Amino acid sequence: MELNVNGRIVETDPEGYLVNLEDWSDEVAEYLAGQDKLELGENHWKIINYMREYFHEYGTAPNLRFLQKGLKEEFGDEWGEKKFLFDLFPFGPAKQAGRYAGTPKPTGCV
């Protein structure tokens, strides 16, 4: 599927993940969030940036369990709670944040 993000064509797979990870930008993340009728705030960006850093370090996107653990270590206990994360990313924190972060679909996510 092709998206037109500010005049730039960005290709995604059928689930909305970037085909070319190099196509990622803040604007692409905001465009994808807009498709979900979600406005990205500071907490969303913390998770998106965490997902990108994790992927850069480990070569894979974190599943929900690893995301919870890492966010809790980095930002505090509240960030490790499922309810907190689902309030930010209602379609699944690891999957939805991963799409916005330009990472592949996390292993183990349906």
Rank of each mutant, 00 (worst) to 15 (best):
Q68P: 05
N43E: 15
G70T: 03
F75I: 00
Y50E: 01
E15A: 05
E11K: 14
D77I: 12
N6M: 10
K37G: 01
Y58P: 00
K82D: 07
F86C: 11
E11F: 11
R99W: 06
K83Q: 03
T60I: 15
E53C: 03
F86D: 07
D87H: 08
G80Q: 00
F84N: 01
I48A: 00
N20I: 04
Y50T: 02
E22C: 00
P90I: 15
G59Y: 08
V19C: 00
I47V: 15
A94L: 10
N6E: 15
T107R: 13
R8C: 03
V5Q: 09
V5M: 11
V28F: 12
F55N: 07
T12V: 15
G16W: 05
F84V: 01
G98M: 02
F75R: 02
D26A: 07
D77V: 12
W45I: 00
D23F: 11
K46I: 01
N49D: 10
A94S: 15
F75H: 14
M51G: 06
G76R: 14
Y58M: 08
E53Y: 00
P62V: 04
E30P: 01
T103F: 06
F86T: 10
Q35M: 10
E2I: 06
F75C: 00
H44Q: 05
E42N: 08
W24N: 09
E15H: 04
T12C: 13
F55L: 05
L18H: 11
